[in-house]
Design a protein around this nucleic acid. Structure first.
Lengths: 110, 110
DNA sequence: GAAAAAGGCAACCAAAAGGTTGCCTTTTGT
DNA sequence: ACAAAAGGCAACCTTTTGGTTGCCTTTTTC
């Protein structure tokens, strides 16, 4: 299921994947390190199995989860790298803002 | 403390707003602390002014930017709070993952 | 070996997203 | 005073998204 893709998707794709309540909750659940099947993940939701499947594929395309077929079920697991990427992107945005503030403060104070 | 304030929606809305290349680049530009008009922001893009306007409104609804009409133009400026929120959300996801790893390591090592 | 469980695949659908064009109002520069 | 600049508003169009249902295949369980 997890095909060898060249190059991680960028922050935009990651943010887009996170920008849906169902997907964000799926990812948050999976970030506890436990692997789960589609049936399990569909259990505590109002959506159909197929809807959940689609969301899982979106997360997978964004690199946020990976799946392997084990027996009759597909096990999905969390992948930390894209979250780290997204974090560092936001860190840079924050840093740029902070620098701007610092420069402004310096300018005002002299 | 954290009351559900207007113009400061949850992480899902923030991620959704960040999940578009045009919007992410607009926000990154604005995070330098400088305020910009729609005309200015539309200048270095292939999109029409109206398209950019729509994106700015999405960012505004997510609380990521704020605007005031000054004279004949609308000045848009960066708002840091939602980015901080999004960062801390990702931090928590990361932390949960790290704890899971630590527990696994502890289990294996004894 | 049949029934049940898990899930893939495809068609289909409605609503939302992203973008455009046209036109009207307000502000500014000369 | 008036043309140009900035931008709001609204209609419209196309593609994507989020969801559904139906059906078929592969495992597992009894």
């Amino acid at each position: 299921m997890s095909k060898p893709e060249l190059g991680d998707p960028g922050p935009v794709e990651v943010f887009a994947a996170l920008g849906d309540p169902t997907r964000l909750s799926l990812l948050t659940k999976l970030s506890d390190g436990q692997t789960r099947s589609i049936a399990t993940l569909s259990a505590d939701t109002k959506l159909t199995r197929q809807a959940v499947t689609k969301h899982l594929h979106v997360l997978e395309r964004a690199g946020l989860v990976a799946s392997i077929r084990v027996g009759r079920e597909s096990q999905f697991g969390y992948r930390p790298e894209p979250v780290a990427e997204a974090r560092s992107y936001l860190d840079r945005v924050s840093a740029q803002w902070d620098e701007a503030l610092a420069r402004l403060k310096a300018l005002v104070e002299r």
